[in-house]
Design a protein around this nucleic acid. Sequence first.
RNA 1: CGAGGCUGCCAGACGAUCGCAGGCGGAUGCGCCUGAGGAAAGUCCGAGCACCGCAGGGCAGGAUGCCGGUUAACUGCCGGUGGAGGCGACUCCAAGGAAAGUGCAACAGAGAUAUACCGCCCGGGGCUUCGGCCCCGAGCAAGGGUGGAAAGGUGAGGUAAGAGCUCACCAGCGGCCUGGCGACUCGUCCGCUCUGUAAACCCCAUCCGGUGCAAGAUUGAAAGGAAGGCGCAUGUGGCGGCCCGUCACGCCUUCGGGUAAUCGCUUGAGCUCCCUGGCAACUCGGAGCCUAGACAGAUGAUCGUCGAAUACAGAACUCGGCUUACAGGCAGGGCUCGCAUU
RNA 2: GUGGGUGUAGCUCAGUUGGUUAGAGUGCCAGGUUGUGGCCCUGGAGGCCGAGAGUUCGAGUCUCUUCACCCACC
Length: 126
Amino acid sequence: MEGKDRAARGSESFPRRCRLGGNRNYRYVYRRGKSHPSKNLVLIYLKGKEQRFGFSVSAKVGNAVARNRIRRYLREDVRRLRKRLKTGKYIFVARPAIKMAAHEELTRELENLLRRAKLVKEDDSQ
RNA sequence: CGAGGCUGCCAGACGAUCGCAGGCGGAUGCGCCUGAGGAAAGUCCGAGCACCGCAGGGCAGGAUGCCGGUUAACUGCCGGUGGAGGCGACUCCAAGGAAAGUGCAACAGAGAUAUACCGCCCGGGGCUUCGGCCCCGAGCAAGGGUGGAAAGGUGAGGUAAGAGCUCACCAGCGGCCUGGCGACUCGUCCGCUCUGUAAACCCCAUCCGGUGCAAGAUUGAAAGGAAGGCGCAUGUGGCGGCCCGUCACGCCUUCGGGUAAUCGCUUGAGCUCCCUGGCAACUCGGAGCCUAGACAGAUGAUCGUCGAAUACAGAACUCGGCUUACAGGCAGGGCUCGCAUU
RNA sequence: GUGGGUGUAGCUCAGUUGGUUAGAGUGCCAGGUUGUGGCCCUGGAGGCCGAGAGUUCGAGUCUCUUCACCCACC
């Protein structure tokens, strides 16, 4: 009981070491990765052994508060989905129209995007 | 009661679940504590701190600009003076010098920094319908109209006509005296009547070295390179721009390090309370407190309750200000004006 | 973090030392020319100079504040 609880809790954590860092890494993924666009987002994915996530929200989206909000929404959603995703390097780029989107909308869009890119593990569904 | 003016404050709170960053403890993934703002913003000023051959002289350049105080410093703040607005409470003001010099003032107007078109008056001449008109010379600046501005205003005297030419009152400027630390001002006397513009050049007074935490320091594997000494002829380049001055490039010797990590990095002109001095800004002294420190960059998501949780908005070396943005709400006394009642 | 630049007609740009009424090209509209269209010729409309204050008699121009966009360096 307790162990299961702990495991469930652990599965939804999202520490900083799971994030993508360094300008060099970003440039590498941009050059080698596959891009999957959608209305408000662009996902760039590169296969790899480790699971790393990066977020890119440019100044075109809005001021610092708006950019932080979008980044937190994205991080929250990725945190929930993380264990069901394949390993590799992910970069989520926000497009300017995203500032109009609500959080629910964004969650659905993100999930659809990842399904379409076939990056969700099927065996984990049950 | 209505309208207004001033000063200050808050900027959702609480609970549950899942998460994030830092610190401490424990040793495995756990517990506890802490975790954005009044503007964190714009980067408009002023400093601290660090380095630059240690900061030098002159010119140029820049900033400030009523007075006094305050401060580490400031273009800030406080108090006053003067001016502008408002019935008033009160608010606002880049507010030195135009009598050192130069420039500019379109259009209009006769004339724009000194002038004479119309005009007024006198003398001479001519004409005459005896009202006056024309020409020449001399004087005047009152009236006309233009303009933002025509050079003091009004009245009286004076005169051929006039004029600060003289007088009375008023206005302005400068000077002496009174009060005040001072800006300035009361009153009297004397002299004068001078266009505006310095957010045009400028003059006067005061101040200013540069670069910025990606500063800089330490550790770190290879090439670049760095340090020390010697020499100084010129050239080239550097030291915020120029000149002076000064340094490097030349030779010898020694050592070695573009990316990364750690430090800088949060205890500081700090905050709260009491108190001394002061009208106040601020300050003397005492007590208590520790309050983000990341490095792709931490505060979020979902639900519930509180009437409704909705503004502007996110720390990046740190402070003091200024400016700008801002939903809604609260307090203070006391302040002003109007209406009504007593 | 630091420094710099631009904003004027639908678009691309001029606008001197403040001065009367802000220009040019292109685009638009109308007329002419042509059998019709283009080219060409003639005429016209379209601006409160990014916004707000201030200085001045007078501001696109000078000063301050502010907004947007762009660039450079470390």
